[in-house]
């Protein structure tokens, strides 16, 4: 039985400039699968509707995944041998769903004079309409003994499988150009996704987050340990939700001031079974962090 949570906080820098939060997040749990999604609308001027673009990206992803699960048996029978093709098709479907949403929104809400006023006529004409809504997207899906995910643009996906270790399973798409922020609004968006598929592994918890979370950490170890600590607290989710929300606000406020979103899905029964292991991992991680710090502070030069 899956459960989950999702939360988005507005970055301190956006508060200062009276912008809206450009992140969106959601999760969905069903009897046999669960989805966690986050999206980060681009911040720059030409993406002036990206707060809507990120919301549409989240909706588009859930719609696409749900559609594949309409025939769950066929999907699960085909995934082991054809996961690459299936993931490609899911990515295409997400982009298609997103485009339907933004076209509809734009038709119903044409660009206003106020929105145009930030640009010269030439500048405005050079912007493709889909760019108004540009966003990243991270989608994490858990089945009963397999997990998969797709991602376009920045963001992170962290999984904790049955061994209790937090890992980042995404296999990054080397074809996506490093100097271009991949986005659902790119003309070749469907070709810019990264993805992963992890078969035959029981999942404890799966997380998607926008890059505001990652950049609030000083090391990748800390980032992964953070997810293990959250997992250790999920048994009291209702109480812990407030702590998570406060912590995300704190991370945005005192960190890089960016919007932050975190979405999580987890297997409640399996987590209960593995709770001792997770608590053990939390303790091990704490010890390893202390050892790293001690090692980092040892001098390596000849001294007087």
């Amino acid at each position: 039985m899956f459960n989950g949570f999702s939360h988005s906080v507005m970055g301190a820098s956006h508060e200062k400039t009276n912008l809206v939060c450009q992140d969106s997040s959601a999760f969905k749990v069903e009897d046999h699968y669960a989805i966690a999604v986050v999206a980060d609308g681009h911040g720059s001027k030409k993406h002036f509707r990206s707060h809507l673009g990120s919301k549409f990206a989240v909706e588009a992803a859930i719609e696409a995944i749900d559609r594949y699960y309409e025939d769950r048996e066929a999907l699960e029978a085909n995934l082991p041998d054809n996961y690459k093709l299936i993931l490609k098709n899911i990515e295409k479907q997400i982009i298609s769903n997103w485009n339907v949403r933004i076209e509809k929104h734009l038709a119903e809400n044409p660009v206003t004079e106020e929105e145009k006023s930030k640009f010269t006529k030439e500048e405005f004409e050079a912007i493709l309409p889909e760019s108004y809504y540009g966003s990243t997207l991270v989608v994490a899906v858990a089945g009963e003994n397999y997990t998969f995910g797709v991602q376009i643009g920045d963001g992170s996906l962290v999984a904790i499988f049955e061994d209790g270790k937090a890992v980042m399973p995404m296999e990054y798409n080397e074809a996506a150009p490093a100097n271009v922020t991949a986005s659902v609004c790119n003309s070749n968006a469907a070709g810019m996704f990264s993805s992963f598929y992890a078969p035959n592994k029981r999942l404890i918890a799966l997380y998607g987050s926008t890059d505001g979370l990652y950049t609030s950490f000083g090391s990748e170890y800390d980032f992964l340990d953070y997810h293990t600590i959250i997992t250790s607290q999920l048994v009291n989710l209702e109480t812990f939700k407030t702590v998570i929300k406060n912590n995300l606000s704190k991370r945005s406020h005192f960190g890089t001031e960016d919007d932050i979103s975190l979405a999580c899905i987890y297997d409640e029964a399996f987590l209960n079974e593995k709770l001792d292991l997770i608590n053990q991992r939390v303790a091990e991680n704490k010890k390893a962090a202390a050892e790293r710090k001690t090692a980092a502070l040892s001098k390596q030069v000849e001294v007087e």
């Binding site: 609030s216 800390d222 340990d225």
Partner: peptide, 20 residues
């Protein structure tokens, strides 16, 4: 963000510090 909500001691997540 209201500073008063950011200051709490019982946060197990504070084990991982916030980087500027």
């Amino acid at each position: 963000t209201d500073d008063s909500i950011l200051d709490f001691d019982d946060d197990p997540l504070s084990a991982t510090s916030v980087s500027k």
